[in-house]
Design a protein around this nucleic acid. Structure first.
Length: 500
RNA sequence: CGGGGUGUGGCGCAGUCCGGUAGCGCACCUGCUUUGGGAGCAGGGUGUCGGAGGUUCGAAUCCUCUCACCCCGACCA
């Protein structure tokens, strides 16, 4: 076979970041494009990561008083029309169902038949259909709050799909709540924002900037939109989750009213919030390296892979016996919100190939076990946060004792590294020239906090730089500043970046 | 939807200008040798050359139409 490149993934991040991203997904066997344009097939390894994300979040939603339910995939077109900004925001990317059966076509094949009286759209988000139901369910203040979530697929007909980051169909959760007061709804919106940020940082090991979206970046129909913005290794921003305070906009549009304790009828205050399979894309771009995927242990499909090494049947049975006992002891241990997940891979393929496969798939700990190790009652351990060749021999008892703390070290190390990278690429900028230099075509870019004002001319300038306002950070201090473009007074800095 | 590009075994590509029985690498299968590291040798299977028309004795190659995908823009979780 030809000489191996120094890295398992080619091109490297430095050579071509977008292509590297695609190659990591392929090498780790996470997902593939499908025959249906814009839609992807999520393969078992990728799906397992998503399942872990789902389970962890779902537990947290439930722990904060939410319940799951399910609403229809199809939404009558007229529902979308009810909220003006909402229509405008989504109309351009809706899949529309106009017929309900097929019939033989004259020239062979099939053609749609049975036109629907009213076209249905495939949900791009479910505010309208859920609001319609809430309006029926809510009579009095005693019915509030309603705190529901659904795990679902949605469709937004995208022109330029990218695996996980932007696909026509994607999976997500959407929380929808209705409250009696604005204050309570705002508290809900912010509580979920914190929940998302905590999840991103402590489970995904992905540092984020929490903040509020500027007017132009808000969810269509929302009063305010809050976001967590993560920074990828190419220093571009990824909107990783959003939480919206919808005010009474949707309640008004859908006649969602309750009778208050004083006998006065009022519109509800609603929120919605979601994270999607895009998180998997963020995970990949946050941690992975030129040898492939790196999954933070808390979300890894498997924490530890055991690779038996043997030459003949006698060694095989001896080694496998040793491995089985290891599996038992490891899987009995608690890690994060479950047990240690171990994969014993005794497939009859070459050791090097096998080992590289798990490097590329990002398994946190790889363990090689051969006759020599058994003779010394030890195991040969490699960690995904170290070089592929950097392996150490540990006694069996020591390895078993240290396994979960090693996982913690890897998890913490990934976070620390990502956080350092994000901080290093975050700056404050106070004049237009410096801003333009920071985001120049050949500059590395990053996050830039600057004063600004939301004007058409400023938008044009930003467009030219391919930069968008990401958010006004929650921890931004009030200060007297001036827009670096127009000189208008500004109270808080906005974080700008190129984004996905 | 604008601008550019590409469609040839599972994957990546050559061949197209200048028409003449479809090739290479990887992967796959079999056997032997190897085996603490993405193995070596030998043998084997794999294609209506994106589709439809046309020109021609003959089309992957020329002409017309069409479809799909990719990249760059506009839009976005």
């Amino acid at each position: 076979m030809a000489k191996q490149a120094k890295t398992a993934i080619s091109p490297t991040r430095a050579e071509n970041y977008p292509e590297w991203y695609q190659q990591v997904i392929k090498a780790a066997d996470l997902a593939e494009t499908s025959p249906v344009r814009g839609c992807m097939v999520i393969k078992p390894w990728g799906w397992s990561i998503w399942e872990n994300i789902q389970r962890t979040l779902d537990d947290r939603f439930k722990a904060t008083g939410h319940v799951n339910a399910y609403f229809p995939l199809f939404i009558p077109m007229s529902y979308l029309e009810k909220e003006a900004e909402h229509v405008e925001g989504f109309a351009k990317e809706c899949a529309v169902v106009t017929h309900h059966r097929l019939e033989p076509a004259p020239g062979g094949g099939l053609r749609p038949a049975g036109p629907l009286e009213e076209p249905l759209i495939v949900r791009p988000t479910s505010e309208t259909i859920i609001g319609e139901m809430y309006a029926k369910w809510i009579q009095s203040y005693r019915d509030l709050p309603i705190l529901m979530n659904q795990w679902a697929n949605v469709v937004r007909w995208e022109m330029r799909p990218r695996l996980f980051l932007r696909t026509a169909e994607f999976l997500w959760q959407e929380g929808h709540t209705a409250h009696a007061t604005a204050d309570e709804a705002i508290q809900e919106t912010l509580m979920i924002l914190d929940l998302y940020a905590d999840f991103a940082e402590n489970v995904m090991a992905m540092p984020v900037t929490k903040g509020e979206k500027t007017k132009g970046e808000r969810f269509p129909g929302a009063v305010s939109t809050y976001t967590i913005e993560a920074m990828m290794q190419d220093r571009k921003a990824l909107q990783a989750g959003t939480s919206h305070f919808l005010g009474q906009n949707f309640a008004r549009a859908q006649n969602m009213k309750y009778l208050g304790s004083e006998g006065v009828e009022e519109f509800c205050w609603t929120t919605s919030w979601g994270v999607s399979t895009r998180l998997v894309g963020g995970l990949i771009m946050n941690h992975s390296d030129d040898d492939g995927l790196i999954v933070p242990p808390k979300l890894a499909p498997k924490h530890i892979v055991l690779m038996p090494i043997y030459r003949n049947d006698e060694e095989k049975s001896q080694v496998l016996e040793f491995c089985d006992s290891l599996v038992k002891e490891l899987t009995a241990q608690d890690y994060f919100e479950g047990k240690v997940r171990v994969l014993l891979d005794d497939r009859d393929i070459r050791g090097g190939e096998k080992s590289w496969q798990y490097v590329k798939q990002g398994v946190p700990i790889r363990v090689e076990i051969g006759p020599r190790d058994i003779a010394s009652d030890s195991v040969f351990v490699a960690r995904r946060d170290k070089s592929p060749k950097d392996k150490e021999s540990l006694s069996r008892t020591e390895f078993i004792a240290r396994a979960t703390s090693m996982l913690d070290e890897i998890q913490d190390g990934l976070y620390a590294r990502a956080k350092a990278a994000k901080e290093e690429a975050t700056v404050r900028i106070d004049d237009r020239k410096a801003f333009e230099e920071y985001f120049a075509e050949d500059a590395p870019g990053g996050f830039a906090a600057a004063h600004w004002s939301e004007e058409p001319e400023v938008e044009e300038i930003l467009k030219g730089l391919k930069v968008t306002p990401r958010c006004i950070p929650m921890d931004a201090e009030e200060e007297d500043g001036k827009c670096i473009f127009t000189g208008k007074a500004s109270k808080k800095r906005v974080v700008f970046a190129r984004s996905y």
